Amino acid sequence: MSKKSIGQKSLHFPLTKIIIGFIVCIGIVRIAQTFIKKLMEITSFDKDFKNLIGGIFVAILAIISYSYLFKFYEKRKITEFSKKGIVKNLTLGIILGTILQSLTIFVIYLKGGYSIISINPILFIVPPLTVAFSSAIVEEILLRGIVFRITEEKLGSYLALIISAILFGAMHLANPNSSLIAGIGLAIQAGLLLAAAYIYSRNLWFPIAIHFAWNFTQSAIFGANVSGNTISKTLITSKIEGAEWFTGGQFGPEGSIQATLFCLVATIVLLALSHKEGKIIKPYWKKTTNR
């Protein structure tokens, strides 16, 4: 075996591809954030709109950097961001994410734990819109576009599902007011659901839309904490109180049992549909056996 072939294999080893993907995409995003922040400082825009413009700029650059990196790295067409079916995937994703979050809050309301204190000006949705939009795109590129997709190619859909879900939950353990239970809940809710959404749609628009709608509805509309983080401005100022098992406590509704159950049901449905339509990828050793 030649040194060149060893080098080529090392370069295209799954872990190598994941590390390079993270370094390039995160590096470009960090540089872009610094650049746009400096640029916005010389403008007279309101702070919230500066952040919104910056968030949109960073999100677009994240998509471009991912697309060009893997187009040349893997020498293929980037179907994850295909325009085909984009309206359908974004619409269904937003509807699903909104319904799941609304059901979660509805359980809290039924138990007398949710009340509206005030309804604020419409522009109060700008800060949570910025956070939801940028985080949905960047996190889905990193966790589903890079980690899950590359792992799935070798280990198959189900093992990749578990690995990426654990990683997603672990990443949120450092969040304010987080806990092991909250991390496990997020691993099941977002970690499994969003990867299942990718398997079913075979693009990133569907999980991005679910992720965005979940976070945006939770913060902007219902005025709740998102993964332990409090947004200063929301359309509705609310009061959420009660036992942590159904409110999520200071971590937010994502820490509730019903959020986990609702998302788990949606995950099972998507995986069942994916299995029926032949979209589940087998691990490499089963592919080899079947030849």
Rank of each mutant, 00 (worst) to 15 (best):
M1W: 11
M1R: 11
S2G: 12
H12C: 11
F13V: 10
P14Y: 05
K17C: 11
V24L: 14
V24E: 06
G27I: 07
I28W: 04
I31P: 11
T34H: 12
F35T: 09
K38L: 15
I42V: 14
D48F: 04
F49P: 09
K50I: 07
N51F: 06
L52F: 07
I53V: 07
I56C: 03
A59S: 14
I60V: 11
A62H: 00
S65Q: 02
Y68D: 02
Y68G: 04
K71I: 05
F72Y: 15
F72W: 10
Y73W: 15
K75S: 11
K75R: 13
R76S: 06
K77F: 07
K77N: 12
E80K: 10
E80S: 08
K83S: 13
I86S: 10
I95K: 00
L96M: 12
G97V: 01
L100M: 15
S102R: 12
L103I: 12
I108T: 14
L110T: 13
L110S: 14
K111D: 09
G113C: 10
G113P: 04
S115V: 05
S115A: 14
I117Y: 02
I119G: 07
I119P: 06
N120L: 00
P121N: 03
P121Q: 03
I125V: 15
I125N: 04
P127E: 05
P127T: 06
I137N: 00
E139H: 04
E140V: 05
R144G: 05
R144K: 12
E153G: 07
S157P: 11
A165R: 02
A170K: 00
M171R: 09
M171H: 08
H172S: 04
A174Y: 09
N177Y: 01
G183Y: 00
I184T: 02
L186Q: 11
A187I: 00
Q189C: 12
Q189S: 13
A190W: 00
L192F: 13
A195I: 01
A197T: 02
Y200D: 03
S201C: 07
W205R: 03
F206T: 03
A213Y: 03
S219V: 08
S219P: 09
S227P: 08
I231G: 03
L235R: 01
L235P: 00
L235F: 12
I236A: 10
K239V: 06
W245A: 09
F251W: 04
P253Y: 08
S256M: 08
T260K: 05
L261Q: 01
F262T: 01
C263Q: 11
L264N: 02
V269L: 06
L270E: 09
L273C: 12
G278W: 08
K279L: 15
P283N: 11
P283Q: 07
K287D: 13
